[in-house]
Each structure stands twice: as C-alpha cells, then as structure tokens.
Amino acid sequence: MDTELVIRAQRGDEEAFASLAVAVGDRLHAVSCRILRDIDLAEDATQQALLAIWRDLPTLRDPARFEAWSYRLLLRACYAEGRRTRRWAPNLRLLPADEPAGGDGLSSVHDRDQLERGFRRLSIDHRAVVVLHHFLDMPLEAVAETLCVPPGTVRSRLHHAMRGLRAALDADARPAAQEAIR
C-alpha cells in the first residue's frame, strides 16, 4: 500500500482517498462477501467500512499498517450489518460464481451447498478467521493482530470453524434419521 496516499488521505485529501478506495475496494468487498454470504449485505458493509476508513483515517497512528486496520474496520461493519439487518438465515441470496470451479477444488454442487450451509452456521467471529486465513492467506499471527485477539483464540476459532465445515461436508454420509430426530 502506498503510504504516501494514506498520509495524504489522512490530511483530508479526497482524491488521495479515492485512489485508496479503488486500490482496496475490491479486496474489502471480496472479504465482506465471503463473510456475510449475501451480496446486498456485503455491499452495505463495504460501503460503511470505506466511509469509516475515511472518517477515522486521521486516528491511524501508523500509515504502514493501513491494510490490517482497514480489514478491522470492515469486520466491524460486517458485525454491524449482521446485527442491523436480521436477514441471516431466511433471506440469504447465494453469491453467484464469477468463474467455474477448478478441477482441483470443489468436487460437486453438493459440496458447495453443504459448505454454504455449514458456513452460515458459524458466527461472524469464526467466519472472519476462516476468510482472513484461507482466502487472504494471512498468517494466524496477522489474523490475530487484525482481529485484536490473542493468537491462541484465532487458532481455537479456526479449529472450531474447520471442524464445523468438515462436518458439513460429511453430512451426506450421516443417516437421514439423524436429521429426523431433531
């Protein structure tokens, strides 16, 4: 990230901020889409996050840490969007795929469906860890810094989340009776 742009935006330079927003907007939006699993919610969250970044930029102490800081504000917006809308379970719009799945990735539509269900069962805390680590390839220490939680908490959340997703993928192997019992 161009720290000079960050510094100029900190001083209220709207053009510099526009350049920053273009540079980070896609990445932020990709993250919010993956966490919230709903395009409308994600657009709102990204928009709110970008405005929060603009508003709070002067309080950023180290411009070199802009990227991690911006993800932190994005996650706050995701939390807020989730609380505000209450559209979690019943009204989710699945994300359209821009590209077909790779041959070495998902084996079936069924896997996608199971993952979607499993992911939706996770809390935002757990989703955030999965997305930051497995989508952005952030090391766990960086995830911890971004989320402002201890690294041990991140490891625990990741373990719990991946266990849940694994269970979702394995769900088809369970007897249907298990579902009926609930």
Binding site: A30, A42, E43, W54, L95, P96, G105, R112, M162
Partner: peptide
C-alpha cells in the same frame, strides 16, 4: 477439508460495484 474450503472461497464476487464506490465518494464532503 482445507483444500475444498479454499477452493470454495475462491469462487464468487470479487469486484466492488462502481455504484458503491461512487456512493462512498459522494458522501465524503
């Protein structure tokens, strides 16, 4: 599981619509 989850996360929207960016920039003043 990790491989499948990573592949699944790679799918989907990545671009921020221009109208969202425009809305943000319009609100700056």
């Amino acid at each position: 599981t990790t491989r499948v989850v990573r592949a699944w996360l790679e799918e989907g929207v990545t671009a921020l619509p221009d109208r969202v960016l425009d809305a943000v920039l319009d609100q700056l003043p």
